[in-house]
Design a protein around this nucleic acid. Structure first.
Lengths: 178, 178
DNA sequence: TCGGTCATGTAATGGGTTACATGATTGA
DNA sequence: TCAATCATGTAACCCATTACATGACCGA
C-alpha cells in the first residue's frame, strides 16, 4: 500500500507525467524508494479510478503527447490521513548481508573481494549524494518547504557511510583469517 | 530470486522444518531478511520440485508430525554458484523516510512525535541485539564457522544506531521550527 | 545508421500479504 | 476455559520484475 503514497506524495509537490515520476524514482528519491515505470503507469490508473488523481493530456508536436497528473481533494486527504499514522517496524531485505551470512562457505579472499567491490560502489554513491547536497543545501540549512529533502538526503549519506565503515571492519576480520 | 537462497542458506547450516525456518526468519535473521510462513511452505515445495531439496517425515506422538528438509547436492551447488556472484546495488524501501519526505505537510509537533516514537522503538531493538551479541560473542571474537553471524549482527546494531542518531538530528531540526 | 531520450503501455511471471482452516497439547 | 505453541497448508489478492511493443526526434 505504500507505492500509492509515494506517488501521491510526489504529485503533492508538483503535477507531472508518469514518465516524470519514473525519473524521480530513479533519481531524487532513490535513496528511500524505487519503482519501475510499468508499476507507476498501473498505479496511476488505479488511483485515478479511485478518484484520488485526475489528468489532462498535453499535446506536443516534436515529442509524444503526455498525461499530466495532479491530486484531487480526495487524493490530498488520503495522503494526509496516511501521514498521521504511527511508524511501523522496518522490514529488512539486504541481499548483500544474506550472502555475508554464508561466507564461511567460500574462501576468505573471495569474501574480501566481494566486500571491496561493494565498498567501492558505495563510495561512488556517496560522492554523488554529497554533490547533490552541496547543490541543494550549500549553507547546510533548509527552507521549511524543503525540510523533507534535507533530512532524507542526510539520512541517505549516513546510511551509506555506515555501510562503507562496516565493509572496512568486515574486510579486517576476514584478513586475519587468511 | 533471493528468498530461495535464504532458505537454502539456512538449510545449509542445519536441516529443519518449515516451522523452524519461520522461527529463524522472525528471530535470528530478522535484521537482514524476513518471510511469512505461507511463503516458506510454497518455496520449500518449489525447491523440492526442482530437486534442490528433499525431506523426510518425522512422526511425533505428542505434537503434529513434521517434514525435515535438507539440501541435495544440486541444492548446495546452486547456493555456491549464487554466492560467487558480484554485489548488486541495494534497492531502498523505507516507509518512514517516505513519510519524512512529506513532513512539510504536517505540523512540527506531529513530526517530532513520530520521530520520538520511532527512536524509542529502535532503542528497544538495539537492546535486544546487544543482549544477543553478548550471549553469542562474549569475547567479541567469532570462530570461523560463525563469522557470518558475527558480521551481520555487527552491521545490524550499527544500522539501528545510525537510525537513532539521525532521529535525534531530525528532532533537533524540527524543534528549531516550532 | 545507431544509440539515447521522450512517452506510453500490455502480458506473463514471480514474490509478498492477508484471510481462512485444522487440531492436539500445555500452562495460566 | 481460554490463549499460546507446534505444525501444516490453501486461496485470493496485491505488489514487483522482466520481456515485449511502438514510434518520433536528435546528436555522434
Amino acid at each position: 500500500m505504500a507505492l500509492r503514497y509515494a506517488v501521491l506524495g510526489l504529485l503533492s509537490k508538483a503535477e507531472m507525467s508518469g514518465y516524470d515520476l519514473t525519473q524521480r524514482f530513479t533519481q531524487e528519491v532513490s535513496h528511500f524508494w524505487n519503482a519501475h515505470h510499468t508499476q507507476i503507469y498501473r498505479e496511476l490508473q488505479k488511483l485515478e479510478d479511485e478518484g484520488l488523481l485526475h489528468h489532462q493530456v498535453v499535446e506536443q508536436s516534436d515529442r509524444p503527447d503526455k498525461k499530466i497528473y495532479s491530486l484531487t481533494d480526495a487524493g490530498l486527504e488520503a495522503l494526509l490521513t496516511w501521514l498521521s499514522e504511527s511508524p511501523k517496524p522496518p522490514k529488512m531485505k539486504n541481499e548483500s548481508l544474506l550472502r555475508v551470512s554464508l561466507f564461511h562457505l567460500i574462501p576468505p579472499e573471495r569474501a574480501i573481494a566481494f566486500l571491496e567491490e561493494s565498498k567501492r560502489a558505495h563510495q561512488e554513491i556517496i560522492s554523488l549524494m554529497n554533490l547533490w547536497k552541496q547543490e541543494h543545501f550549500p549553507d547546510d540549512h533548509p527552507v521549511p518547504q524543503e525540510i523533507g529533502e534535507y533530512l532524507t538526503i542526510e539520512y541517505g549519506t549516513r546510511f551509506v557511510q555506515t555501510w562503507i565503515d562496516w565493509c572496512e571492519f568486515a574486510i579486517g576480520v576476514f584478513s586475519k583469517l587468511r
